[in-house]
């Protein structure tokens, strides 16, 4: 098996079209998510460092609108 290239670990994506703006993601993982002035999600990092993975998964589960995902 080929070892994954750098940056091919879990990647976050966020969809501001469906974001409900209540900031659950920011509370769960402030190092990965922010909100713009209008309240919508802003990704601070798309590549999730290993140490942040549990918080990233938490954020995905807590998000009420399905706006964020990890793949």
């Amino acid at each position: 098996m080929v070892s994954p290239a750098p940056g091919s670990g879990p990647r976050l994506h966020a969809d501001t079209d469906v974001c409900a703006g209540a900031g659950q993601c920011v509370r769960a993982a402030p190092e990965l998510f922010d909100q713009d002035d209008g309240g919508l999600v802003v990704l601070l990092a798309a590549d999730v460092p290993q140490a942040s993975l549990p918080r990233a998964l938490d954020a995905v589960d807590l998000c009420p609108s399905g706006a964020i995902g990890l793949r």
Partner: peptide
């Protein structure tokens, strides 16, 4: 309507 309000309630 909701988008007129969410900015008032961000975590920050």
């Amino acid at each position: 309507v909701r988008r007129m309000l969410v900015g008032e309630f961000t975590v920050r």
